[in-house]
Design a protein around this nucleic acid. Sequence first.
RNA 1: GUGAUUGUAGCUCAGUUGGUUAGAGCGCCGGAUUGUGGUUCCGGAGGUCGGGGGUUCAAAUCCCCUCAGUCACCCCA
Length: 449
Amino acid sequence: MNVGLPKGTRDFGPEELFKRRYIFNTIQKYFELYGYSPIETPSMENLSTLLGKYGDEGDQLLFKVLNNGDYLKKVPGDILADKDSTKATKHLAKRGLRYDLTIPFARYAVMHRNDINLPFKRYQIQPVWRADRPQKGRYQEFFQCDADVIGADSLQYEAECVLLFDQVFAELGLRVDIRINNRKLLSALCQKINAFDQLSSITTAIDKLDKVGFEGVQNILEKEGLSHDQINTIEQYLNAEHLQEIADMFQHEEEGQQGISEINQVYTFLDGKTLQNKLTFDPTLARGLSYYTGAILEVRSSEAEMGSIGGGGRYDNLTALFGGEKLGGMGISFGAERIYDIMEELHLLDKAQMEAPVLILTLDEKYHAYGFDILQQLRAKGIRSDLYPSGAKMKKQMKYANRINARYIMILGPEEWENKEIAIKNMITGKQYNVNIDDAVDIILEKTE
RNA sequence: GUGAUUGUAGCUCAGUUGGUUAGAGCGCCGGAUUGUGGUUCCGGAGGUCGGGGGUUCAAAUCCCCUCAGUCACCCCA
């Protein structure tokens, strides 16, 4: 046996897929409840759409799709001779696999600008591909569940996204911590210490706080060439426990005041709404993605050790990259794969298994066709059901019934046939009794409702 | 891209300082029970020990190469 799967990809069996769908369906249900409409984009995009959007590392992690036809012929001889893969790529591949859902959405928004009306609320649940090395909770093919609203500045959407996170995780039965911060505060921090051009690297450093602790962040910042005074100010910021402390810090930074005000407005929108999970302001929350400019959100499980299982934020200009009209917005993403892993770990998916069907057993070919009639009657009533395909040994059929998780079996054998009856057995309790053959469908219907 | 670790039956894993015919549990198939599963008892099938090379009288075991998985770092969901 020499079959296998490409690295970082998985098959999903029936049981697993029932569970996965339960999660996706729940997320989708709330996306739609909140007024988001679905779109889908192709698995492949033009490489020119993708390249340069995710940084140098991102470019490395893009799956490139080899051109069709005599692709080597079109590569200039000198590039071929140089064996420089980076240079040769653009001659070998003009398409690549989708790396996330955000950039394709930006491309979509620009291309279909005349067909969408603002504010445009879309959600998208599709697989994406990344060529990085797989490890726990990381795959080369995985699903993302994104919802974004573009073309509206209102902070109601920040509040809406918090509520969306809160409700979805509550319905899934996961207890989570939702954390909120605002990039404007980080921006103000960099202004305050006169290191605004290092905003991006300081953000990245702060983002590692959870993992490496303050000493680790300190080391990174030192390597970035920041002075002790600057680092002290950053530490003071990171240690702030209340919004007021931050507000005091940024009295002279307009952007800081704005960030504070935005966070307060989000809280105002949420005032009086009952959240089922904890929402905390966390000045240390940074998030790696560079395009966020306002609110940032992150969700972590309070019950399991795992990275973030949801995140999002506000961006100013998603479409700038494609030269379209400036469209800002707010978006969030659910980390469905990780949510699955945590829920499996906490046994929250056991109940999400397929609802057990009804299985009909016949013990003789003579009335097998009659069993098929009953089967169609059950299905017409919307009962998931099946008929064992032959009059095999009772034991074998029973085993099969067990394996497919049948809740009820209907047995049609010589004795029953003679008396115009059918035996109904509850596979969970083991109880069994005979009913009139004409009433059987109604009785099953009653039981499975 | 960097580092670690593991590859033995369908699955999870034992296998001593190299030493006859490589084992267990679970699963599978059959029987006890020709009309009753999930419990029990009995029997059976199933292995290029990841692949290649080397050392040795002898290699699952030691050495080299290679492939694959897993985990961590970078980055990320």
